[in-house]
Design a protein around this nucleic acid. Structure first.
Lengths: 139, 139, 139, 139
DNA sequence: TTTT
DNA sequence: TTTT
């Protein structure tokens, strides 16, 4: 048993990439509010890395944008990678089985907001490339 | 909503410590089997850091030992700390609300296994001190 | 371990009542969409009874109205009661630990919708009295 | 989102049956301890109906027996049926996606306990027939 | 016996 | 109407 359920907001537009073997993968970060306030009386958030594979990855890439709320159901997974300084590092990610789009971000035209244009794209790429997907994560 | 449910085995005896303000905290790592086999046909595991506070922390310290199964219910949390090289690092932990002891490890005498003796103790300490609890994590 | 997580819409305004010992209890039904279509190609819903106690009960009574979405976290519980025909019956309910209000129902004035007026009230009362709370459900 | 996670003990051997269209279905009841004691200081249990379909149904039928612990992950579903008195009734069931066998019941020989022989079989049948599966529940 |  |  390895279950995770999170509700939060995307900290940026999701990034969709393809592995060497052609699998679709979508990555984004979810800001999940903590259930309590800190010493300064502020409610912080945890910024949790989400990974989605396959058909749902495409849906997320097409439908989700920065700031939207999403309800993620998945499992915790830990990946190791080699840092630039030669040491081994670990990242903890939630591999999503399903993603529910809680709200559609309203636009002036009423049309669904479309993610991804030149500006944010490069920023996302640098984010995504920090921990490469050398190995396939089976679904 | 931030929920995690994990079932796995302790990779070592739990470590119990006290914060500067006297709160009890118990840490251990849970090996959670992946739901599929890798390319070599082996089932790997994720090694997930668990943190327990308060009364349950004491119970875990007294009752759980390396190799035992536990069912953990909690929430994902990310802590930052300063690495020895001066850079900022993040650890992802599961803050447990409850821990169910699935099985009592059998001994020759039939008595419950008692955790903690000199050998493994020092090893645990080094593990625990890697990411110090400078700040209180409110419950 | 007894955990339930549901997201759905209230089928009517919640009903708030008080037990003989003065505890607040709030009841409503959540329509939760099924994850698939039936033979006629329609997606049905399950109508699940929710029970909330204490402070959260009051919040639900004040903030939730028919049609709104809510994210409920709780546990399954089965209560028995005596039907009018003298036989024993059982109801399955979700005892909520927390209820997240996913959306505020929009009004013309922009003010939060207020639940409860004479009309629907009597209808709710009849609903609530079907299975009385003779015994306290400890929290 | 409709998620249920339960850990408890089978109150009887599971019953395996087949629908008119040849689908395998396995039913059992899980006794799930309540997290608190009642007024008499006793911990009660909720007796929750579990339904499993397909391959996992067969595994459950072959591997689980009365008294064993199981960890069930599934979703809540409500089925209606016509009572003998002509009225409509509802049953709430947990449709399991996965069932983890927490422990193997020990036998003198050390061999896995095999469920199902003539005696209990007839008892199970009567249990199962109380609420028939006239309609297929899609998976 | 229901919600959108 | 039940499990340990």
């Amino acid at each position: 048993m390895n279950k995770v359920i999170l509700m939060g907001r995307l900290t940026r537009d999701p990034e969709v990439r393809y592995t060497q073997t052609g699998k679709v993968v979508c990555q984004f970060t979810l800001a999940v509010d903590r259930p309590f306030a800190n010493q300064e009386g502020q409610r912080e958030a945890d910024f949790i890395a989400i990974v989605v594979w396959g058909k749902i990855a495409e849906l997320c890439g097409n439908s989700l944008t920065k700031g939207q709320r999403a309800l993620v159901d998945g499992r915790l997974q830990i990946r190791s990678y080699d840092a630039k300084d030669g040491t081994k590092r670990w990242v903890t990610e939630v591999i999503a089985n399903s993603v529910e789009f809680i709200e559609r971000k309203a636009t002036g035209s009423g049309a669904p907001v479309q993610s991804g244009d030149a500006g944010p794209k490069s920023e996302m790429e640098s984010f995504g490339s920090a921990v490469p997907f050398d190995e396939e994560i089976p679904f």
